[in-house]
Design a binder for these strands. Structure first.
Lengths: 206, 206
DNA sequence: TATTTGAAATGACAAATGTCACAGGTTATA
DNA sequence: TATAACCTGTGACATTTGTCATTTCAAATA
């Protein structure tokens, strides 16, 4: 198995290399910036890239992005510290196959094998925070919105007008107006468009 | 290691059990519905749950959700077929630690070990489709929207009314109306709320 | 130069929206 | 029982919104 390491810290490169060799990885290449990494990737048959997310001047995600542009099947694992958790969404979108914390170096080889097997590995510490972010969004009950009001909001968020909402919920149009008027008051908004915005910014998930 | 299997197909249970025993798993428990699963989970010290996402009458995600309610550290891997990819978002939100395709049964034990090590495993086949969905979203240029029109859309998506938009863009209110009228025509929508919905469903990212 | 295109504007009009006051009904809860 | 909270409804009213025809002006193009 050929692994390419990307890190601007020579010491980290050295220790990762030692860990990998101890696990029986025959060929380990090292690079300390994106250009070098891409160069090596192009000229050797790299099976997997292990890359720090944060280099001196460069953004690890950009490097990963370039590698994936060259080879969209590239297997890239990003190594991250606690502070970098924010990047995970972008990383996943770019197409990275692994996102693990440096703390969790014990299971590093485990993760490498998982990625080699065609799966994706995310550190569960990181996942926790994604969920937290998500829940912070999903504070449906923080505003005291009733069931019925929520029904109306959801239909507003589909772009329905009053008549359509009234038909959907078997209400009169006037009642729908009242609901909306109350909602605007409760949420301190001005018109239905703002309710739609509110929905997508605060209540919408998935 | 104690593993609990959840599947309504006795044959699948049997074969999974054999696979796991061949890998050296000492104790394998089986259950064929959510209630049974929860019961076993409570009474034995289960390390990991391997569960079909689709049971006869039950939704696998609901079962996972109940298990996680009882033990929020529960390590659950969902087994899925190609058809079920839609569930992945929900699964991640619920707190499942693995989501892998049944096709990929070869690397099953690999995945189990990864989850045991505290990481999360997602099948990359599934991930592909998530990315595709995401990209399908980002087709900003597919609709022939001009720069200026996009400006208007973005302000609509902030919940502004015509006057506010006109002040933001240094236009007259009438011009803003015309822009919106044209947009509605182009996008085949009816009113500004639908433009907001359109924005959050199609143009908005991150 | 003449023509076309795009951005911006105006005014008039109909329809949709939001506000307000009020009212009847149900279901919990104090 | 009284009270409160929620759901539903009506009618009148002012405002906002969307449509349409038409105009002006500048820049690009034939």
């Amino acid at each position: 198995m050929r692994i390419l390491l990307v890190d601007d810290d020579a010491l980290v490169l050295k220790s990762l290399e030692m860990i990998l060799k101890a696990e029986g990885v025959d060929e380990v290449y090292t690079s300390k910036n994106g250009e070098e990494a891409l160069d090596i990737y192009k000229n050797y048959e790299i099976d997997l890239v292990l890359q720090d997310i944060r280099l001196k001047d460069e953004n690890g995600i950009d490097i990963a992005s370039k590698l994936l542009e060259y080879d969209k099947e590239a297997k890239i694992i990003l190594l991250t510290t606690f502070k970098d958790e924010e990047y995970i969404n972008k990383a996943i979108k770019v197409g990275v196959k692994g996102y693990i914390l440096k703390d969790n170096i014990d299971s590093l080889f485990q993760s490498i094998q998982t990625v080699m097997a065609g799966n994706m590995v995310l550190d569960s510490e990181v996942i926790k925070d994604i969920k937290l972010l998500d829940q912070a969004k999903k504070s449906i009950e923080d505003f005291d919105i009733t069931e019925r009001e929520l029904d109306v909001i959801k239909l507003l968020a589909e772009g329905m007008n009053n008549k359509e909402i009234s038909q959907s919920l078997y209400l009169s149009e006037g009642t729908v107006r009242n609901y909306i008027s109350n909602l605007l008051d409760k949420l301190d908004l001005r018109d239905r468009s703002q309710i739609v915005v509110f929905y997508y910014k605060n209540l919408h998930n998935e």
